[in-house]
Design a protein around this nucleic acid. Structure first.
Length: 206
DNA sequence: CGGAAGATCCACT
DNA sequence: GTGGATCTTCCGA
């Protein structure tokens, strides 16, 4: 538990979003809410490649108030609201001005599952994936909203730590979800998940 | 200032 | 598999 809770270093994030997305699988999100600690193991990610990626909020160098934190350097959180009601957590990667980030799409509870379920308004027995099986669910379970936008992932109450090792053979790859508008980028294989993990969101990839 | 779209989720069929 | 919820953000006029 000691090693696994070591925060990842800044150098981990100062790389391209694709390799960071793969390397984030198996890492742990450590979230402190008041005096409670929540731990979620990352099981699914997507890379967004910045200004050259039509699916990215940074496409073509677009700069808006919402996306200002996306253009910072790794490692800070980029949190935004989609569809007016769901939050999405990203880790900003690379250097300042690039607009690269990794969307944390799904996680598996490691510790603090009861509080996560309360945050999700769940009780009793629940199916795998009900707690953290999607970017909106994961944020709700961990009580993450826009107030975490721009905060450091290296220290404070939202940190990503070493977690447990994942081998290359465990990683499934596929096209990203919910970006039908992205034209030539629609099929880019930038979605990564732990093969066979029941907490991965839909549609499944193998 | 108005309209449209959106890196989702849930219930229902 | 499909459609509705829901409202912020963004862009064009």
């Amino acid at each position: 538990m000691i090693h696994q809770l070591q925060p990842l270093r800044q150098s981990f994030y100062r790389r391209g979003a694709k390799v960071v997305a793969e390397d984030l699988l198996g890492k742990w999100i450590l979230r402190r809410v008041g005096t409670d600690d929540l731990v979620m193991r990352i099981v699914e990610t997507e890379a967004y490649l910045g200004t050259s990626d039509r699916a990215s909020h940074a496409w073509n160098g677009r700069r808006t108030e919402r996306t200002s934190t996306l253009y910072r350097s790794g490692a800070c959180a980029y949190v935004y609201l989609v569809y007016g009601l769901h939050h999405c957590l990203n880790a900003v990667t690379g250097s300042q001005g690039e607009g690269e980030a990794v969307l944390i799409r799904a996680g598996e509870p490691v510790s603090g599952e009861k509080l996560m379920m309360a945050n999700r308004n769940l009780e009793g027995e629940v199916l795998s994936g009900a707690i953290g099986g999607g970017p909106g669910k994961l944020c709700q379970a961990l009580a993450i909203d826009r107030s975490s936008d721009g905060t450091s992932l290296l220290e404070g109450n939202l940190v990503i730590t070493a977690g447990d090792p994942v081998s290359a053979g465990q990683i499934a790859t596929g096209p990203r979800v919910g970006i039908d508008y992205a034209q030539e980028a629609v099929d880019w294989p930038l979605r990564f998940a732990l093969r066979g993990n029941p907490h991965v969101s839909r549609p499944r990839i193998v």
